[in-house]
């Protein structure tokens, strides 16, 4: 083959290949993701619907192997009572594992405060859990990388790698973390990752008789819960920490921190 034939052949091959290749488009991965949304889990709490029964707490403990008698919990319910004479009381006995069986307020150190029903101005319940923040301070401070935020937006702990220093517990502004009494490592809400990846709702969501707790894929605008978050006036907890929580609340007031 001489030089002329080689050049001729090259031009033919390039021209021939250009036709089918021109039918292919070069995709921007971001565009593709926008058209086919991935999964990013978010949580919605409707505080108007919560009655403080504590079923969510019990379901969570049973589902996630957190001993019932251990005084730590992945999710808990807080009771806020405002009296007409200008006082504000908050409590969460045992994280509301048994709900709120007594009307009196647990003041700690074994003391209780009776409140006259006539004196109650307003009162409500606020369920709390890990906010699965978009910029989680807890994963930032882990010295060994045992806790991390996965691609689906869930903050998880690797029990086989955690050294139990407690730095993540200190770094969480929401008090969502604790040491597991049996495994002796940091533990927290996983949004029941073992369930949601199989298409099941988290245990607390399933146990809530009033639909106060909901979970959704916030990247899917067709998800009814996502639409609620997008259309309702929702709040987040402690936004001043810049953690970008992914747990949204309907009916928050300034006193809920």
């Amino acid at each position: 083959m001489n030089r002329r034939d080689f050049l001729k052949g090259t031009i033919v091959v390039i021209a021939g290949a250009a036709v089918p290749l021109s039918s292919l488009e070069f995709f921007d991965p971001c565009e593709v993701l926008a058209v086919n949304p991935g999964i990013h889990w978010a949580f919605l709490v409707d505080t108007y619907k919560c009655v403080g029964c504590g079923f969510c707490v019990k379901a969570c403990k049973l589902e996630n192997d957190v001993p019932l008698e251990a005084k730590v919990t992945r999710t808990w319910v807080e009771r806020y009572v405002y009296t007409r004479d200008g006082h504000q009381y908050v409590d969460s006995p045992d994280g509301a594992l048994q709900g709120f069986p007594e009307p009196r307020i647990d003041m700690g150190l074994g003391e209780f405060k009776e409140i006259e029903p006539d004196n109650v101005g307003k009162a409500f319940f606020v369920p709390k859990l890990c906010n699965h923040c978009d910029t989680p301070p807890c994963t930032q401070v882990c010295p060994v990388g045992a806790t991390y935020k996965n691609d689906e937006g869930v903050v998880l702990v690797d029990r086989s790698w955690c050294i139990g220093c407690g730095y993540c517990i200190m770094a969480c502004p929401y008090g969502a973390r604790y040491f597991h009494p049996v495994y002796k490592v940091a533990d927290k809400c996983t949004l029941c990752y073992h369930r949601i990846t199989k298409g099941l709702p988290p245990a607390c969501v399933e146990a809530c008789p009033f639909g106060a707790r909901k979970i959704c894929n916030i990247q899917d605008s067709n998800d009814p819960v996502t639409r609620l978050i997008l259309s309702e006036r929702v709040g987040i907890l402690k936004e001043e920490f810049g953690t970008r929580p992914q747990a949204f609340y309907i009916g928050l007031t300034a006193e809920v921190r």
Partner: peptide
């Protein structure tokens, strides 16, 4: 059973007024 289920930090922490359930003096 209660003792066996003691959370690290529970042994030396007392709580007064409203403290979140998971809060103890861990350090």
């Amino acid at each position: 059973a209660q003792q066996a289920m003691a959370v690290p930090g529970e042994a030396w922490t007392t709580k007064e007024l409203f403290v979140l359930p998971n809060e103890y003096i861990y350090w």
